[in-house]
Amino acid sequence: MDEQLKSELRRQGVVATSLQELYNWGRRSSLWPLNFGLACCAIEMIAATMARYDLARFGAEVFRPSPRQADLMIVAGTVTKKMAPQVVRLYNQMPEPKYVISMGACAISGGPFKQGYNVLKGIDRYIPVDVYIPGCPPRPEALIDAFLMLQKKIDEQYLTGPNRPRHLNADMPSEFVVPEFGTHDLVPTQNSEVWKAPLVNISIAGKNESGRD
């Protein structure tokens, strides 16, 4: 439908929309996050929900204590290897459609504890992440920005076609491998369907900024 005509109609008190728009509007306007935090980023997440930053303005004030009722997982903090299976299991228990925000340096890559003996190098090794927020910890504004980014992402999704979201595609997995505790590391160390080590040309690594693939 023509955008100009649509806004013209709206000015006259007539709302014209499509099913896709309505569907996406419904999904994006009531993202219910899962109520859990892993480390200091969770404090910023809590701050974002309280009166000063007021995440409720964007429809995400209902933090659910059960994964069965949540749409959004905010991985807020360091994921230790001991905690990783539980995080993946919680994600698996969430119903589709579900989204993940990886909040802070630790949840993205391990952050300052990357070389630690018990720190997972990013939750995206096991579950698909929609929005990454860098920062240590990110400010509440950054979390709100991530929310807006996720809402924008949902808004732009098509309900049909090859690029339709995972929950509308029966062939796509909605559960992911829960790692098990090995003798020295998690088994497997990564879910290769979700994450692959980025390619880097080792022969010139660290020598030349351009030319990296």
Partner: peptide, 8 residues
């Protein structure tokens, strides 16, 4: 658990 580092 090797991983890509930008400045290896």
């Amino acid at each position: 658990d090797y991983e890509y580092e930008p400045t290896a």
